[in-house]
Design a protein around this nucleic acid. Structure first.
Lengths: 146, 146
DNA sequence: CTACAACCTCTAGTAACTATAGCTGCAAGG
DNA sequence: CCTTGCAGCTATAGTTACTAGAGGTTGTAG
């Protein structure tokens, strides 16, 4: 029975919280493990590998849905990996877009903060700037992808 | 009665959805407006100003909680605007940290994508890289602030 | 035998909306 | 006067990816 571990050990080995592991099982991302006589989850190394894969993908910002697809594709060993490539590239584009968006916000925030030289709220340029969208470059009112 | 408008007009004037306006009212970010004889919300220009302020802050990535504080501070007209400044600067730091984080992901994703030159899933370097956290620079397993 | 940690299930909470169901109000056309 | 249809109303549930808690059971060490 080499490598049979309980959920606490799996959590440590994968740097993933116990709750999260149970959550992944519930949504079908991790297969249901065996149970001990006392109804405790018993994991083997397959589970650990899969969980490490998932956590690494999460650390890279993939959504659980994207990860589900990647795991599915990884199971089909003679398929072309074009789809894998595609998912990764789409995600890269998303990341790049987020960076661009945030750089815009950074620039605008700096402009607003630097513009305030007074000390009273009723003359505060930050509040004025926040109330006035006119000079702002952050056009996307309504798009909350920060 | 100049400027008395219904929720649909307010939505258009602020580029904010009707549902969102009602939501802001429910959580106390927008004050409850008057009602018409037929129980419809009736707004004046104060509401529009406040809503535009909120939407602009949201576009800049402030949380509703931060916005609540900003609105509160803006009401106290003889207070020092140091706190306003503080909120804005904290947010700027948050944005800068997110940018750094995402730049790390971008670099790592590019490395992984560029490493894959084969065409079959069972040799796919992307999947291998995703399963192996060893060479990865994105250390923060568990921190999902993307 | 008794602590105590680690496990179990189930439910609710987070942020900031968005969407749906099922209703009423209101103005215009026939 | 009646209908059509849009705009408004409330209330509830869904989204993402967890996290926290209640309240109970199992396993182990002293």
């Amino acid at each position: 029975m080499t490598g049979a571990i309980l959920i606490g050990q799996l959590a440590k080995a994968s740097s993933c919280k116990v709750q999260t592991i149970r959550y992944y099982e519930k949504i079908g991302l991790l297969p249901k493990p065996l149970r001990s006589s006392g109804n405790q989850r018993v994991y083997l190394s397959d589970h650990l590998d899969r969980l490490i894969f998932i956590r690494h993908c999460r650390a890279l910002g993939f959504s659980l849905d994207q990860i589900r697809k990647l795991l599915h594709l990884a199971g089909d060993s003679d398929k072309s990996c074009g789809e894998v490539d595609q998912i990764a590239k789409v995600h890269l584009v998303e990341v790049e877009e987020k960076i661009k968006h945030l750089e815009g916000l950074r620039q605008e925030l700096r402009r607003i903060i630097d513009g305030c030289k007074v000390d009273k709220v009723d003359q505060c340029q930050i509040l004025k700037a926040l109330g006035d969208h006119g000079q702002c470059i952050a056009k996307e009112h309504g798009g909350s992808d920060i």
